[in-house]
Design a binder for these strands. Structure first.
Length: 574
RNA sequence: GCCCUCGUAGCUCAACCGGAUAGAGCGACGGACUUCUAAUCCGUAGGUUGGGGGUUCGAGUCCUCCCGGGGGCGCCA
């Protein structure tokens, strides 16, 4: 059990005894640390329910809990805040219990759900660029969090390989004259943007692309051969990017993998009357009565006979339900596609493709903009390749190692590995620290600066702890029992570490990795202050030294889990 | 035009679904390395949370209007 749950139970019981809702007793870390360690705000809400003065209710609650031996002080403040401070002894025993738990106080799900995380969404037509960074690492982080919480997580990149863009590429490749059997990603990169632009202006070309899409989807051998070559050329590059980021998937499905489900699905939808003809296309109406605006129907099949990503998305839901038994699907996709997912989810429930019990959720995120506040572009107007950004941060990390003369005894190969870990940490943290839903400005300088609130700052704190624990072992010292905190910085560290369960819970509930990132930074900062104030290895009191080693080890365990949730690895030295 | 979203310190961003005196980092200024890694630590300055009105004991957070940015709106993804 977590400390905050325990405290909430105590205060909640008091509220309940007074005839008020137990939930009013929720205890949270104090916002005024100089006044108390914890607070409960339920008395004010209770006052509303009972038409009694809040301070009076707070006093009644306090009368019932004040004698509890774990509390050092319990008092009223302001309009009716209940402020709580624990004895150092209580803190020490909660610290010991939490540190010994392999989930550090977090309660793992009693009944695991099957959770599909759909993220990254690499596209055959394009190399991954900085814009794909968010989808990839936010999704990866959420997958890691749900996994930690005890769920059965299935990660699927949902490769974009079946829509109109494929027909567009095939048509453009024919025009370009490049040999389709040896086509490379660079060819695709060169061909796609102008083709996409041309389709907008040249109706005849657009029709040809639509035709190619249909032929591909209907199994034309020539088209399938070109498609296969394009797809594998593209996948080589995507896999390299994922490897560099340390991101792995459980499945490697694309839109095309559900093609065989489309025909029967559409047939069933026709029969049930959910699907209907409109302007020559087959659509599903998704408007609902209390909409405050018009929702266009979802298009199942175009008038030319082709299938769009709406169609494959629906068929994918069918697959995730039938084959994977998914209880929850998280779609980590750009916020601009909100309307699309509203359409798809409504159509899925309306048609019965998704049972009502299956939860479909769009985890939208904001756009990554350049310093001018507009979508990020290079000076030449092109996109920045993800691989280039990774190289940039890795090189910067390597430079930093050299100029600071760090890890000099390590072989060059090992130093390169450290640089890669540090660079990627800077990149991931720099992104995940931002609120998922808001747009943000991509600042390459921030990604390649390793001071302050950055990924490397967190790694550095962890590395310091590792170093101390290593040296302690050499000196024959070992972590001992955690005793009463001997210094303010230590008490603050312990209090912070005890917040772990609720932070993880919140991050999962809000699907918000930035809460993990923020908390990890706070923990690292608390440790660094403790490190500065309390010199562990030279401490003469053996009991205190053993306790400090134990707290350090707990802090390392906490940081390790948090960084793992962010997809950041900790080197042994940096 | 309709709908969504954002506007917080010089800059980049937080703020645990309504709680106390709005927090970090960068940048600026001033300190701390013969001691466990200075990619660190300590301190100072910096705010009418775009603006007005409202609900509430209490509003950055909820409602409303205005201003400004971004996004979406039938066969692209």
């Amino acid at each position: 059990m977590s400390l905050l749950t325990h405290l909430s139970d105590i205060v909640g019981q008091a509220f309940s005894d007074l005839g008020l809702p137990t939930e009013l007793g929720a205890v949270v870390p104090s916002q005024r640390r100089e006044l108390a360690q914890f607070q409960s705000n339920g008395a004010m809400a209770g006052a509303k329910l009972e038409a009694r003065p809040p301070r009076e209710i707070a006093q009644d609650v306090i009368d019932r809990i004040a004698t509890h031996e774990e509390f050092k002080t319990v008092d009223i403040a302001g309009p009716g805040f209940i402020n709580l401070t624990l004895t150092d002894g209580a803190l020490a025993s909660w610290a010991a219990a939490t540190a010994a738990d392999d989930h550090l106080g977090f309660a793992v799900a009693a009944e695991p759900s099957t959770v599909v995380v759909d993220y990254a969404g690499p596209n055959v037509a394009k190399a991954m660029h900085v814009g794909h960074l968010r989808a990839t690492i936010i999704g990866d982080s959420l997958a890691r969090l749900f996994d930690f919480a005890g769920h059965n997580v299935i990660r699927d990149p949902h490769f974009g390989d079946w829509g109109f863009q494929m027909g567009l590429l095939i048509a453009a490749v024919e025009d370009d004259g490049v040999d389709p059997t040896s086509i490379t990603l660079d060819d695709l990169q060169r061909i796609y943007p102008p083709a996409s632009e041309r389709a907008r202006q040249d109706d005849a070309f657009a029709d040809r692309a639509r035709e190619a899409t249909v032929r591909l989807q209907q199994g034309d051998p020539g088209h399938r051969a070109i498609w296969k070559q394009m797809k594998s050329a593209s996948e080589v590059s995507q896999r390299a990017n994922f490897a560099a980021l340390g991101v792995n998937f459980d499945l490697w499905y694309g839109e095309s993998d559900v093609h065989d489900r489309i025909a029967p699905m559409i047939e069933a939808m026709r029969e049930s009357g959910v699907a209907e003809e409109s302007d020559g296309a087959l659509v599903v109406r998704v408007a609902e009565e209390d909409d405050n605006r018009e929702f266009p129907p979802l298009i199942l099949q175009t008038s030319a006979g082709g299938f769009l990503y709406s169609t494959t998305d629906l068929a994918t839901i069918d697959m995730r339900n039938q084959e994977l038994g998914a209880d929850l699907c998280l779609y980590v996709v750009d916020r601009r596609q909100t309307d699309h997912f509203v359409q798809v989810f409504r159509a899925a429930y309306r048609s019965g493709v998704a049972p009502q019990s299956m939860v479909l959720e769009h985890i939208g995120f904001g756009t990554m903009n350049g310093p001018d506040g507009k979508p990020f572009k290079t000076r030449e107007g092109g996109v920045v390749r993800l691989a280039d950004v990774i190289k940039l941060v890795t090189d910067a990390a390597r430079d930093r190692l050299d100029e600071a003369h760090l890890a000099e005894e390590y072989p060059d190969e090992e130093r390169d590995r450290i640089a890669a870990l540090v660079g990627v940490a800077a990149l991931k943290f720099g992104d995940l620290i931002n609120n998922r839903a808001s747009d943000y400005i991509l600042d390459l300088d921030r990604f390649s600066s390793f001071e302050g609130k950055t990924g490397p700052y967190l790694q550095y704190a962890a590395v310091r702890i590792k170093s101390i624990l290593r040296k302690a072992t050499v000196l024959g010292l070992a972590p001992g029992d955690i005793i009463d905190p001997g210094a303010d910085s230590e008490r603050e560290l312990v209090l912070e570490l005890l917040n772990f369960p609720e932070v993880v819970e919140r991050a999962i509930a809000l699907r918000a990795p930035n809460h993990i990132a923020e908390y990890a930074h706070t923990v690292a900062a608390r440790y660094n202050r403790f490190y500065d104030e309390c010199h562990i290895l030279s401490e003469e009191d053996a009991g205190r030294q053993g306790s400090w080693l134990a707290v350090s080890s707990w802090a390392l365990a906490t940081l390790s889990i948090l960084l793992d949730h962010l997809g950041i690895e900790i080197p042994d030295r940096m």
